[in-house]
Design a protein around this nucleic acid. Structure first.
Lengths: 216, 216
DNA sequence: GGCGGCTGTGACCCACGGGTGACTGACACG
DNA sequence: CGTGTCAGTCACCCGTGGGTCACAGCCGCC
């Protein structure tokens, strides 16, 4: 990508050549990219501002000319990542009126999210800064908000009470989120779409009958 | 020092009186208790060794007479917590041969675990030290191992291939884990057993039919 | 009673990393 | 060609916190 004549790259971290100047806007997005890579690879605490600056081929003060502090930088990236999945989730739910397809589409969203090249999902699902309220709030919002949209459908179509709908929805989100991460770690023994379809099937079987209590 | 001769009992943080000596064994478990409280309340990074020592009414070097370092202390607690849920999960699965009851029992285990007073589950499900391989390995082991036991049942009873069984099992674990944490955060609008039963119902409906593919 | 072995303490060391201040070098413009 | 501007750098500050050293009270025991 951009520049990187030598790049070397090698393992995971690569000091960029450190040569050229850049217009402010451009530099800013480049810094965001570098920061994302470093945060994803190392986590918030292990990532030093120096690392991010080096990664971008720039010295530390430049970073501070664009972002007031480490936390702000992190939050900017986190927000982007949170919004992405929430929006995708919303679109998936709105894409059809067939609930079986809704489940499948939503599951696909989670698997795509986790599979995306940059690994930004790690900021959301594997953040190591959950003790920071600002971070916690955003991370929780992903589950809460996705679940809330799903819960609306459940409540509407089944008449279950709010709390139950919400809890069911959260458990579907949890299922998607955890299984997708596990699938990713597994290294591709199952194709992405197959995995998503399998779990979508599980989810759909689970909720389709509500609220009729047809136990055994 | 600090007024509080009377302990005050304390709501959240309390310097213990700091008076007495203690036999080594006893001190050790007390330190573990204090460390758990602090790690649970603050997370690994925000917790200082001084905090833990203070919490136990003791000075820092005492801590180092019992544990070689902060990480070791953390890992000791983490191990305990990991083993607890894995063992409970195993017992739940072994407690019956009726799969519907198995699901219910296992779900109850997760809800009890999360509801337990000490909050030790946070070390496992909300650790902020996942960048440390030793921690990562243990945290992952919980999901992996629980899922593996569940997957055995699934594979045996349905004949599904290994990878599919494993993925289904993981998604059930994810469902349990995420929904239980959400339920806890909700603050008790639904009773623990009701919540567990609700999600167990969802899970059971999901898997009971496999491998017959009765879509729509 | 003094002496070895505990448990325990106050004070200190030092690496690490977030954040800053003073300077430089290129370029556009009048 | 001076000069303002803006990207960029080097070197530094300093709070925080993990980890350690030398010393202090208490105990039981010959």
């Amino acid at each position: 990508m951009t520049a990187g004549s030598t790049d070397t790259t090698s393992d995971g971290v690569h000091p960029r050549p450190r040569g050229g100047r850049m217009p402010r806007r451009e530099r800013r997005v480049q810094l965001l990219e570098s920061a994302l890579e470093v945060f994803v690879a190392q986590g918030y605490h292990a990532a030093a501002m120096d690392d991010i600056a080096d990664r971008a081929g720039v010295s530390k003060p430049v970073l501070y000319q664009h972002f007031p502090g480490k936390l702000d930088l992190y939050l900017a990236l986190l927000d982007t990542s949170c919004d992405l999945i929430i929006d995708n989730c919303r679109e998936a739910l709105a894409s059809t009126n067939d609930n079986r397809e809704r489940v499948a589409a939503t599951m696909k969203v989670f698997y795509s999210y986790v599979a995306s090249e940059e690994g930004a999902f790690r900021l959301v699902f594997e953040s190591d800064l959950t003790s920071e309220p600002d971070v916690r709030e955003r991370v929780d919002r992903v589950t809460t908000e996705c679940a809330s949209m799903i819960a609306d459908v459940i409540r509407t179509d089944t008449g279950l009470p709010d709390e139950a709908s919400e809890l069911l929805a959260v458990s579907l989100v949890g299922m998607a989120q955890v299984s997708a991460r596990f699938w990713l770690a597994g290294g591709g023994e199952i194709a992405q779409d197959d995995a998503a379809a399998l779990i979508a099937g599980l989810a759909w079987r689970g909720i389709r009958g509500y609220p009729m209590t047809d136990d055994h």
